[in-house]
Write a protein that binds this DNA or RNA. Sequence first.
DNA 1: ACCAATAAATGAATGACGTTCATTTATCTC
DNA 2: GAGATAAATGAACGTCATTCATTTATTGGT
Lengths: 204, 204
Amino acid sequence: MAAVLDQDGITAAALELISKKGYDGLTMAALARSLGVAPSALYNHVSSKDEVLKLVEEDLMSKVDFGGFSTLPWEDAVRQWAYSYRGIFARHTPLISVIAVLPVTDAPQTLAMYEAVTEGFLRAGFPEKQIIPSIVALEAYIFGAAFDANAPADIFDSGRLADSTPHFTSAVRSLGPERNNYPSDLAFSMGLDALITGLGALRG
Amino acid sequence: MAAVLDQDGITAAALELISKKGYDGLTMAALARSLGVAPSALYNHVSSKDEVLKLVEEDLMSKVDFGGFSTLPWEDAVRQWAYSYRGIFARHTPLISVIAVLPVTDAPQTLAMYEAVTEGFLRAGFPEKQIIPSIVALEAYIFGAAFDANAPADIFDSGRLADSTPHFTSAVRSLGPERNNYPSDLAFSMGLDALITGLGALRG
DNA sequence: ACCAATAAATGAATGACGTTCATTTATCTC
DNA sequence: GAGATAAATGAACGTCATTCATTTATTGGT
């Protein structure tokens, strides 16, 4: 039969669907409809919805910018990589629970990123044994920060309990004149600087 | 009618169910069964499954150990808090996507924790404006690390693609003689030290 | 002690959703 | 042109969370 479907097409359609309707809108039925096909047809090309998510993940990984590791000083390369990584996955937080636990085996894009990052660390003078743990720590921070970037501006509104949390409430208020001062970007930058400084000290 | 159910009982049953069957086993039907009640009865006490998750979350927050902030040096208090926080939520990662974005309003346990942590930062000499961003950064790291703690030991097995990722593969191997060397704990400790050092430098 | 109001539990029904499978349809190969 | 094969179909399943009309038990007022 004329192959209407393939994994690339499914991946692209899934990404478009996600960007338009979010992850709640990503159902096998909706995905099939956007491809002009019956839901069951998808199963000739992917074994499950989980596999669709893995395909999307790999695609996103290929968009993470790790180019700095071959051109910039280590600190700047890490910063560029981390911002790019967080920026992309902030709009795909439902994937994080998958990625964080997904073996890299047969994930070429993900492996390519790790290889480049590892090379950058080596070039910067890190002892080999420190590299993977450092990357893991940075990634943990990036993933957590990606969630954070989606928090509503009033997440720290202590409401009726403000009186029983005076120090916290005051610290929140100190960030700006009113509500709506969730410091996601500022926090990311501060924590990233701290990590870069701290991990950078491990260089030989 | 004799009130068989209440929110505390539902929360306790949910926690037990989660510990026995995991988050996949936490269905409204299973929860009702464990309470000897019809599923629809639950809706007299909670408005949705999401509310059950919020109740569980609040309960878990009350178990996070932030006691060090009133007794230990700041660095040690942060470490104790972070380890406790990560340890608890590592077994409840499906909640993280909820928490990270959930307003603290009407979450007394969560607010109590933030209040204590804020006080600890103040006592340690942090300028008020730096406190919330620092906490946010630490929490992001803790949440990410909680996911990480669940990664399979062979997550970094590059498999057939090992040849194309020599530096990465070698760095992974350097961690130990064989596979199964996922450095989740080591990475957590390293990154946490880096954050503590880096953020600690913000003190006045 | 009764009655009305109310809180709580029931069971049947609904509508998504992911997934399976027997069957049909179109294309490629010999 | 026949037969194998890859791909799409549509109906069906099982699992969920959730709703709702109804029943049942308890409470407070007189």
